[in-house]
């Protein structure tokens, strides 16, 4: 009995270790458009874009930046704010959900406070000004434009880039 318990504990520790290792190695994009940059800096050139739910393999971490590789083999640096250790499941009834992965390992996309709930809210709050919210979301400044804006105004960081 005692040896069996010890065996179980050793197995559990192993499982936990492997789980932790796997969690570090794979991360999911938790924003609509994640930016893969050439260098680990907010001034780094954006090399590619990754989508909500994309799984990325982590190669290394430097400060707030992860060096990653996506399923198509593209590599780059992405800021930690764009990533989650949870698996982002795009559809309910997905294999991961069916397999019983708990709510703590997965994040269901499009669920909870979503478009449908927003629709209900709009119906009950007709005065809420969603027209301007939609319009303001069309005000988009790309990273390249932002960098050009700073240069044109002679705004330059004295220290190194973050």
């Amino acid at each position: 009995m005692r040896t069996m318990r010890r065996g179980l504990l050793v197995a559990a520790v192993l499982v936990l270790g492997v789980a932790a290792w796997a969690a570090v190695q794979q991360m999911s994009v938790q924003v609509r458009a994640g930016q893969l940059r050439a260098t680990p800096s907010h001034l780094g050139k954006v090399a590619a874009s990754v989508a909500y739910g994309d799984r990325l393999t982590v190669v290394q971490k430097q400060g707030a930046w992860y060096s990653v590789k996506d399923a198509r083999g593209r590599t780059g640096w992405i800021h930690e704010s764009a990533l989650t250790t949870k698996r982002v499941v795009l559809k309910a009834g997905d294999a991961d959900v069916a397999a019983g992965a708990g709510g703590d390992e997965i994040a269901l996309a499009g669920k909870g406070f979503n478009e449908q709930v927003e629709g209900e809210y709009k119906a009950q709050n007709a005065e809420a000004d969603y027209a301007w919210v939609d319009r303001m979301e069309t005000f988009v400044v790309t990273p390249e434009q932002a960098v050009a804006f700073l240069a044109a105004g002679e705004v330059a960081a004295k220290g190194g880039a973050q």
Binding site: Q30, V31, R32, A33, G34, Q35, H42, Y52, A64, H79, S81, A82, M136, E137, F139, V140, V141, P143, Q145, A146, V147, F149, L150, V155, Q162
Partner: peptide, 21 residues
């Protein structure tokens, strides 16, 4: 938006789901 984006990019949270506006 140009100014705000340039600043948000350098924050500790440059990426949010729908971006800064």
């Amino acid at each position: 938006n140009e100014l705000g984006q340039a600043l948000a990019m350098a924050s500790d949270r440059p990426q949010t789901f729908g971006g800064y506006h």
